[in-house]
Design a protein around this nucleic acid. Structure first.
Lengths: 197, 197
DNA sequence: ATGGAAGTAGACAGATCTGTCTGTTTGAAT
DNA sequence: ATTCAAACAGACAGATCTGTCTACTTCCAT
């Protein structure tokens, strides 16, 4: 690990497996996709698959970790794109919802979908809870920075709008939902800041 | 079908199957529950099962139809309990959410969970869409009766809060979510009616 | 050059799941 | 009393799915 660039290397096979899982798990659901399908589509040997992911559940958890990375990144980007004012950021993060819903093959929130298939005590379910709590905590920080009277309540209200948009956004393909979510967020933020129009 | 009361009779075996499916499908997910389990727990013969439900999918659809009955009834009851004013009913229907989340073994919205396991074109998925549209339509009627400036937008906003509460309510067991949803609904309703506090 | 890590290819075992089929029992209406 | 529909009991076929195991290849670092 000194000469060329050998070092970590992250294993191309593992990446291919994870890419395939990301695509198929989200599109069809975790239970609906067999390991054989993932193995075939990622062009990997079965032994290699089980070397990297001793059980299918481990792959499911890795899949959710990747979703968390991506989605959290998109939320933060959307918030920052709204400017410096935390109040504007609280509204602006809903642009990530619009973008997500417009995406082709959108099928709702990967975490909620995964939790729907999982047993309450399982690792997959726990990751979902952890993710939702992380997002809630981040929004609460913004709400606190914005000077909301009750930051926890405002944060909770905004996550309700966000999760509602994520969950139902895939059902009726009407593009108004994200817009309504954003406008409602503005109303709730203004109200929480005492700026009633 | 003239004398006693013979007539429809609805078949006790069918009821038992449906009761068991209602319980197990919701608690563990549709795919996670095999027909053998349902047959065993409902104390029914396999032939009887397949006589009433030619395929497992038919049972899943019947399950969702029953959920629709129950949940729609609870929503309407909660709304009516809030009084005559449509604006109050729009807020009061969120009491159904509180009740649902408090229930032991609550595991989110049965429709969203079912849709997460289903393929977009499938009967199960279609029922979910139909249900969500029905609820949206009903709320829009209330919003219109209340005299909202944009009834469609208000209805959409309220369903976002409702679906958000249903979807995420099972994840962190904090009982504040339904309360926040109700309070937020009041804010949005007031705003839509021009009654800014 | 050589040893070892990582990957390929695919057979195999064992469990599970859906749906079919045969045969028996029950119960009510004619 | 007999007939007929509904339900019971359970074996069985066929598919699928997870996870294990053997054997061969490739390639880099020592």
């Amino acid at each position: 690990m000194t000469t060329t660039q050998a070092a970590p290397r992250v294993s191309q096979a593992r990446e291919r497996i994870l890419d395939t899982a990301f695509r198929l798990f989200y599109a069809r659901g975790i239970r609906a996709v067999g390991v054989d399908t993932i193995i075939a589509e990622s062009g990997v040997a079965k032994a290699t698959f089980y070397k990297h992911f001793p059980a299918k559940d481990d792959l499911a958890v890795a899949y959710l970790d990747r979703v968390d990375e991506v989605w959290t990144g998109q939320l933060r980007s959307a918030a920052q794109a709204a400017g410096e004012d935390p109040a504007d950021q609280l509204v602006g993060l809903f642009d990530a919802l619009s973008t997500a819903c417009r995406r082709d093959g959108y099928r709702g929130c990967a975490f909620i979908n995964a939790a729907a298939e999982a047993t309450p005590g399982s690792p997959v379910h726990d990751r979902t809870v952890a993710h939702k709590l992380a997002v809630l905590g981040w929004i609460r920080e913004l709400a606190t920075a914005a000077g909301a009277a009750d930051p926890s309540a405002l944060a909770r209200a905004l996550t309700l709008l966000l999760d509602g948009g994520l969950a139902s956004g895939s059902l009726d393909a009407s593009p108004e939902a994200p817009v309504v979510a954003r406008n409602s967020a503005r109303v709730l933020v203004d109200e929480a800041l005492g700026r009633r129009a």
